[in-house]
């Protein structure tokens, strides 16, 4: 019988494996800790640019959004997160009628961040930003009007 399988051998190898374990944790006891203290480290904290936290409408230099009220985003959303209200305006010069965005409501509470709306938008009028601190006390506050 090998030494490993004898009574004494089992005790010896058992104790040895336990001591190796203790040695490992002791080393970690003195290493630098990895905890990130979140609210305090807001300044240094790194969030990926691609992180999807909340839908928003990027504005051009005149402060207008690029939405053409086509409704593709609302149609493609699996959860019905986006509701668009439009009105038809007739251009006085050309006489052509055109759909104009009135209200773009985004329900943060039912969004699953699949990015289909952003992908489908022909004008890149919507995008995701990094504002992830979105906790509110009231569900109704999760309905956000994106066009200002």
């Amino acid at each position: 019988m090998e030494f490993k399988e004898t009574y004494i051998g089992r005790i010896f190898y058992g104790m040895r494996s336990l001591l190796i374990g203790l040695h490992t944790t002791l080393k970690e006891f003195f290493t630098k800790k990895v905890t990130e203290q979140y609210p305090e480290n807001r300044k240094t904290q790194h969030i990926s640019e691609r992180h999807r936290a909340m839908l928003y409408m990027p504005l051009d230099e005149n402060g207008n959004n690029k939405c053409i009220a086509c409704g593709l985003c609302a149609n493609t959303c699996p959860n019905g997160t986006i509701v668009i209200k439009t009105k038809t305006v007739t251009d006085e010069e050309t006489g052509k009628s055109k759909k104009v965005l009135v209200d773009y409501t985004y329900d943060l509470g039912s969004c699953m961040y699949c990015q289909l709306c952003v992908n489908v938008c022909p004008k890149e009028a919507i995008a995701f930003n990094n504002h992830f601190e979105n906790a509110v006390f009231d569900r109704s506050k999760l309905f956000i009007k994106l066009n200002k």
Partner: peptide, 29 residues
């Protein structure tokens, strides 16, 4: 439980890579 934390500590590094590239940590799309 200590091993559990060690595993999660290292997994965090992958999640950071995922977040950087895909924008998501668990649900990456």
């Amino acid at each position: 439980i200590t091993t559990f934390i060690y595993g999660f500590r290292d997994r965090e590094k992958i999640l950071d890579i995922f977040e950087e590239v895909t924008g998501g940590r668990l649900i990456q799309n």
